[in-house]
Design a protein around this nucleic acid. Structure first.
Lengths: 156, 156
DNA sequence: CACCACTTGACAGTATGCTGTCAATTTGGT
DNA sequence: ACCAAATTGACAGCATACTGTCAAGTGGTG
């Protein structure tokens, strides 16, 4: 293993570990922001995707990079809590369309002020410049990795 | 809510969602890289921190940004699988030192070639320049957020 | 030394995400 | 129109991480 390889392993490893930490940090923040409401981090995220447009569970799963089974459980929970509902899908007999209810919309609205306040604090803390740098870097990284998913995950 | 606020909420939200996806991607990759070994993504990460130095479970948890309970379960599993062991801690009667065993070290060594190969592929795919940009941006973001943890998470 | 705040291990319960499987449905190619 | 492949819902089981609680140990202060 030459110097170039050792270095690339370390850099990639460092990024992976930092992303794990960032993920934990953001999940904790989201759990905090939703505390007191009927939502949790995951339910908020799923409900957020069907506020204005209906989507099937597999569609949501693909857009979030999760398995359809995970999203299905969240969706079922949202429906049983009457925060969302399944509407018949004219284009597909099995795959119903998940849609937010009035109650779901209200839940989202309730936590919105706290979310805005939190995001503003983050914005001030990081600074617009570095926040934008981070957004761009992460988006680029993710886009390139997604393209190579077959190569990098399915057969490793 | 003025334009500046709306924008900051959207930027921060976009970063959060992308970090969630990146996290899922990396966990999946790690599960793939450890498949066939006695390790999983999480066990690999914990074992990796005690390869050369012993640490207590709470120390590991703090360094990884997890709760001590989560790490404790992984550590107990590693010990029951004889991949690690608890050594008496001269400085503390309760908090033992987790240490890798010979068997644990061998497990790490076994998957090392696949890890190196994977990291090299990522390096080629992303490019050294953008990989370095991403590393720097993520590290900066994380560092600033960690400092403000009290402000941003504990009381939100 | 005594006390108090903090840390740590242990245990219990919950939420989220994964894999794997099967039958029903949809889709696309012949 | 037909058949094979892919998609989808449903169900089961497992791994990981969280919160909350309690007793045992640690460290600083009066």
């Amino acid at each position: 293993m030459n110097e170039r390889n050792r270095s690339s392993v370390e850099v990639v490893n460092g990024i992976v570990l930092d992303v794990f930490k960032l993920n934990g940090y953001f999940v904790k923040a989201a759990d905090c922001l939703t505390k007191g409401s009927e939502l949790t981090s995951a339910r908020w995220q799923v409900l957020g995707t069907v506020l204005h447009e209906q989507h099937t569970v597999p569609e949501i799963a693909r857009s979030m990079g999760l398995t359809r089974q995970s999203v299905q459980r969240i969706a079922d929970k949202l429906v049983s809590d009457e925060l969302a509902e399944f509407l018949p899908n004219p284009a597909h007999k099995r795959a119903q369309l998940l849609s937010s209810t009035e109650k779901g919309l209200n839940s989202i609205k309730t936590i919105r002020p706290k979310v805005v306040s939190w995001a503003e604090k983050v914005n001030e803390l990081i600074g617009e410049g570095e926040l934008h740098d981070a957004e761009k870097a992460i988006k680029t990284l993710l886009a390139k990795l997604m393209v190579a998913e077959e190569q990098l995950i399915k057969r490793c």
